[in-house]
Computed example of a mutant assay.
Amino acid sequence: MNDVEVAQPMLVPMTRPRPGMCTVLIHPAGGGLGAYTGVALKLRRRGTVFGIRGHGLAAGETPDRTVAAMTDRYAHLLDELPQPPDLLFGWSLGGAVAWELAARLSSRGLRPRVVLIDSPATRIDRDPAVAHHWRERVRGSVTDDGGVPQENVTRTVEAHLDAVTAYRAAQRQDCPTLLLPCAEEDNDANLAAWRDVASRLTVRPLPGDHFGAFDGDRLPLLLGHLDEFLTTTEAERA
């Protein structure tokens, strides 16, 4: 996104249209899609890739403050796709929204695959000290995706922090799901919670911390796990 005008559409084509799989990448806290560039380049070999950027970045928008509100808004965007999504992918907050969107699709008889990059499944805000620490880390990690007014970015970040720290995964479903928890984070409770709701869960830990998941030296490992997951689940569907 180079300017506010380009940022206005919420459903953003990230590759040229091509036959095959339809992927939707859902923004992390802050609403931008820049972290997903390497993932989109990898997934374009399998089909068309779209991104959903956060509501609140463009002029006149008010950011959503709950995962439920985002799910309601983004569910309508999925209807604009040329075909139902085969893969929903999200990092942190984006993973939580991806999970809830997959539940909506499951209720219609669809079974998209879901990829969760170090996504929470238990409420962070139950411990004020932990929530404060998490908020400070997120605030320090968010960068401008290009051309979006800083006040819009800041307002959206704060709304998304409310959403992610209050989220708890409760929707049980059997969509094939890949969880990539970051090894340097305290993920025991989240892993247990994901196991409770995901009956077809594959877990592949990533080294390092939450904010380095897409770093250049770790991205090949992430993409390797993603490729293995997609190849395996495609063979199961055949």
Rank of each mutant, 00 (worst) to 15 (best):
V197K: 05
A69D: 15
S92A: 07
R44A: 00
A96W: 03
F50T: 01
H76K: 07
A59P: 13
V115W: 00
A183G: 10
N190M: 14
L78E: 07
Y167F: 06
L178I: 13
M21E: 11
L78W: 13
A68L: 09
A183R: 09
L25S: 08
A96N: 03
A98N: 10
P220D: 07
P19N: 05
W99N: 09
I124V: 12
S141V: 11
G32C: 02
D227I: 01
F50M: 02
R139Y: 13
G51F: 00
A58S: 10
L230R: 02
V4T: 13
M70E: 09
P205E: 04
S199R: 06
D144C: 15
V49I: 03
G56R: 15
R16S: 04
D72H: 13
R172I: 07
P207I: 08
V138K: 05
V6L: 02
Q173S: 07
R65V: 08
Y167A: 04
P181M: 15
P207W: 08
V24H: 00
V39K: 00
I117N: 00
S92P: 11
E136R: 09
A40F: 02
T143Y: 05
G20P: 06
R46W: 05
V6R: 03
D118K: 09
A166C: 13
E5A: 05
G34Q: 09
D186C: 12
R139V: 12
R126Y: 01
R126C: 11
T122Y: 11
G38V: 00
M10G: 10
L81K: 11
T48D: 01
R200W: 08
I117L: 01
L219S: 02
T122D: 10
G94L: 04
A238E: 14
M70I: 03
V115R: 00
H55I: 12
C175D: 12
G212R: 06
G212W: 06
A192M: 13
V97D: 06
D162M: 13
S141A: 10
T15K: 00
A238Y: 13
V138R: 11
N152D: 12
T232E: 14
